[in-house]
Simulated assay, not measured.
Amino acid sequence: MADKAEKKVSGGVKMLLELGPVAAFFIGYIKLKDEVFTIGGTEYDGFIVVTAAFIPLMLLTTGILWALTGKLSKMQILTVVLVTVFGGLSVWLNDERFFKMKPTIIYALFAAILGFGLWRGESYLKVLMGEVLPMEQAGWMIITKRLVGFFVLLAVLNEVVWRGFSTEAWVNFKTFGLTAALFLFFMTQSRVFSKYGIEPPKEDA
């Protein structure tokens, strides 16, 4: 039953499906950033065209991931919905600002949800990650508090970059800066994980 409920997929394939669309967006933007396309009598710059291609690619890779694993996290589902909505608005209205606002809304929403849980004395992060990362409640509360502040910081940074810098600077920030920041955050929490982590019980031979 367990194998049926949770299908296994190699880490390389999973990473390709999750990060592939982002890498494709970056490469597509670099190649088409100075191009202008006339479609149906309306001019679209390279950013809008790449955004239009990114949406179905994101839907396709997420669908493949779901077919291979049998499940999607709430974060993955929310990300796809926001990409579709705000990316679609950017393409429909020919206005790149909507797509650039997407990270701000995602991080602000995550911070609000986790903050609401903290207000109730709970860690919603534990609900999402508790099975794969067993840890004492005190540890989850510490990580969740820090993550709320971190998400707020990322939301503010995204607003500063897309409003104050060029589109190319924002694409680099979105592709490399935000990804590196998330990895760095969790790497710096290693002391909390080691202090409050719970080792799974060992089965008798």
Rank of each mutant, 00 (worst) to 15 (best):
M1I: 11
E6P: 07
V9R: 00
S10M: 07
K14F: 07
M15G: 08
V22D: 02
A24G: 09
I27Y: 09
I30V: 15
E35L: 14
G41W: 13
T42G: 06
E43H: 14
T51M: 01
T51D: 06
L59Q: 04
L59W: 08
L60H: 12
I64M: 05
A67K: 12
L68K: 12
Q76R: 06
I77L: 11
V81Y: 01
V83H: 11
F86S: 11
S90V: 05
F99E: 00
F99T: 01
M101D: 08
T104H: 15
I105Y: 13
I106P: 01
I106K: 03
L109Q: 03
A112C: 02
R120G: 10
R120N: 11
G121S: 01
G121R: 03
E122W: 11
K126F: 06
P134Y: 13
E136L: 04
Q137E: 13
G139I: 00
R146K: 15
V148C: 05
G149W: 10
F151Y: 11
A155H: 01
A155I: 08
E159Y: 03
V161E: 07
G164P: 02
G164C: 14
F165N: 02
W170P: 07
K174V: 10
A180W: 08
L182W: 12
F185Q: 07
F193V: 04
F193R: 00
F193S: 05
F193L: 00
